[in-house]
Write a protein that binds this DNA or RNA. Sequence first.
DNA 1: TAGCGTTTACTTTTT
DNA 2: GTAAACGCTA
Length: 675
Amino acid sequence: MNRNITPYILKRTADDTTPRKLSIDYAAALNPQQLAAVTAGDGPSLVIAGAGSGKTRTLVYRVAYLIDSGIDPSHILLLTFTRKSAQEMLDRAGELIGSRSERVCGGTFHSVANMLLRRYGRTIGVEPGFTILDRGDAEDLIALVRSQLGLNEKDKRFPRKGTIAEIFSKAENTLRSLDDILLEEFSHFADHLDALGQLQRGYQAAKRQRQLADYDDLLVLLRRLLTEDPHAQESISSLYRYILVDEYQDTNRLQADVIRKLASTHQNVTVVGDDSQSIYAFRGATFKNIMEFPALFPGATIYKLEENYRSTQPILNLANCIIEEAAEKYSKRLFTRKLDGPLPTLAEAAGENAQSRFVAQKILELREEGVPLGEVAVLFRSSFHSFDLEIELSRRGLPFVKRGGVKFIETAHVKDLLAHLRVVANPLDAVSWHRVLMLVEGVGPKKAQDLLASLVKSDAPYRVLRDVGGRSGQGLKNLAHTLESLAGSADLGTAEQVNHIYEYYLPILKEQYDDYPKRTRDLDHLHTIAEGYAEVGQFLADLALEPPDGSAVDVEAPDRDDERMVLSTIHSAKGLEWQCVFVIWIVDGKFPSLYSFVADEDLEEERRLFYVAVTRAKRHLYLTYPINVFDKSSGMLLSKPTRFLDHVSPAMFEQLALIEEGGHSDWRRYRDDSY
DNA sequence: TAGCGTTTACTTTTT
DNA sequence: GTAAACGCTA
């Protein structure tokens, strides 16, 4: 095949229907391996797609091909890692075959499960109006149940709520028992096995009674629906006759089982993934899903995409070197036709701020050379690694967006406001009630508990609030009045409802936080988002399933994505690419993180993470690390670059030594604490 | 028992 | 630097 000939696709218009005859020249647009995967017949298939090998392109063309060959688009289900990537793929498919692609069902496992449960869940006791708990809500409910069960005895070390949530979640996602998880991965809490079992049952009962579902429940309940209700199973499985799954290496056992059940009547499953890019083990994902796919779906055809269209050879050489040391993988070796390009750069900086200034300065240079800001990304292991850089970039007026890290939806004030909306939508929602009540002056844990008990039983919860006297009487009357005005007028739009609560909540906000002006801006942002929704339930579900990232600061900047660079955790950079990529904090102890030193498989995951970071770059790759940084948590002085470069030949890099202008050898002048 | 000041032990990645 | 648990006071 001659790569110098660029295919030019003549688009089909929507009304131009010529069935049987394919409208796209697939052979011209795809390489032979991609073509084989795209035009595969019915039955299961596994596509092993190396980094940058046209994985997305293959999925997009597969969707187009299915529709092109006469499949009703509404019978296709596209499962992706984020809803945004599903939307992008369907848009691209739309460019190929026209508006028919809009009828394809696409989204994350969680969003599809949410939709199916609201439609079919009644038979297994799931009411369509259920509320989705995010991680924080789930932790709050666990804490609530724990105190109700009297499990917060102080004598022994009991895991904290976040850890408990993690343990429960892992058990669900890996289809293993609580005891198993506890003994193998949290053995230091083995003493509390019975208590945790009791707590888990209590937590599950509480969710059930109050129509609450955490993220895991969405998948667990869908799986139960498919198992226990043959009628629903039959309808759903025959509705989605073609199932496509992206990023299969990051699915867990639970998700794999859901796919198997969804496909039970037809086995038309196409999964795409790369075992070398599996980076979500902490969430229960296992690259073994990819390894075992052929066993789970007998007769599966395997396709391998090994030609890389993204990066230059020097970058690929480094990537291949890093992953070569990996313990277990499908063997594949990436190659490219882009032979020439600059060597990756490895730069050692005297401290964190020197690293930040290097990155900023280099970005300015690159812009001079014609690399637009939108083609630049800075990646890091943990979201706080970019704090110093953010300050440096702001100082120099370099605009950026940050991906990953704390979502504005998780901030206390936003959760407070939403809690009011949620108790109106679902009066059984104990978590939100608790939150709302605790905000009232004169109400503490005890009173909140008591009120909660009578509220849930009562048909007229607002009357209960009104009839309370004493110190908290007036506050509760105000609350009752506000909530009632929302519940009373069903025709009130979502944005108006947010406004009503805002008026009630503002005095509380001012009382609680000195920095309330900043926080009110977040609430304004929330109001703006709410304007796009006619229905409150949809608004709440969407916020939980796809929290908008970024803070109020980003919202105010003009939305010119091409003018801004991206700062992102490596996890959030999955599937993306840029001309120029910086990976910062490549210092042993931060990356790989100290936590991963204990278990080999954790270290392997960090290696894959590094591989993902490196393979995001098309042409320019800069790896930087500060030297002699003191790590407070371990008391160690970190001073050597990541161990993943230990076996990489120095010839593969250009190494830079950063020197201060004017020959300062005293870099302490510039250290972060001097600002 | 609500509310606040003090102590102590952690501190990643996300649907 | 922060979140949760503890302990004191009104």
